[in-house]
Design a protein around this nucleic acid. Structure first.
Lengths: 110, 110
DNA sequence: TAATAAATTCTACAAATCAGAACATTATAT
DNA sequence: ATATAATGTTCTGATTTGTAGAATTTATTA
């Protein structure tokens, strides 16, 4: 595995992990992506991506305490690492620069 | 073809096409991505993506006039369509909302 | 202990991206 | 006119990223 760039879903999930702190786990991430981003995604995709992000050291995880709910496995809680945050920032600032550039050149995109 | 979302490179190239108007063609896009985004990419990827973006109607293209240069094929010039612009805007506004959320929750990401 | 709920892990597949070779077109030099 | 060099595009196959659903694990309640 090379892991050269941050894919489209990888970036969204990384952002969502940050945005959901400290309760970021797969089902909550799915809900957030669906509701706030209109981004359909199945649970297993989220797990796949989270695992890849953890390999890249952009997130870290631990198991949550058992809560007095209905039952089921313990949550695996994720949080973003400084490296992950930096990766997001780098992407954002560069994309924003292109945006600025584009708007100067074509303020009316019709 | 499903074309459900805008991939990571698709988004960058679409943005670059806008940012380079009216001289957006593959070699110029490669240069821009390399220099402004530190995004390495080979020429053929750019052509592949441009072709996909054209199928999605996010860009349109025409051949450039023959310029008095050293020689070679005519440039295929791309420009972003209103649909393409809207797609970029939608993505940006949603991502920005997640960013705002994340920064409120964790202003110090260490 | 059986049933149910919640969540994660596994397995196979599809789409996006990468990489480099092959090809086509135009201009200049001979 | 023909060969050569420059410029860009298209083709083919491999790798990475994303999708989908079944299977499994763990905990609670009847």
């Amino acid at each position: 595995m090379r892991g050269e760039h941050l894919g489209e879903l990888e970036e969204l999930i990384l952002l969502t992990v940050g945005s959901l702190y400290p309760e970021a786990y797969a089902p909550a991430i799915k809900k957030e992506l669906t509701e706030k981003m209109d981004r359909k995604v199945v649970m297993s995709s989220i797990h796949t991506v989270l695992s890849r992000l953890e390999n890249k050291q952009f997130v870290k995880s631990k198991f949550g305490e058992s809560t007095p709910e209905r039952g089921g496995k313990r949550k695996r809680l994720f949080e973003i690492t400084p490296q992950g945050f930096q990766a997001l920032e780098a992407l954002k600032s560069k994309r924003d620069a292109l945006w600025t550039n584009m708007l100067q050149i074509m303020p009316n995109p019709s």
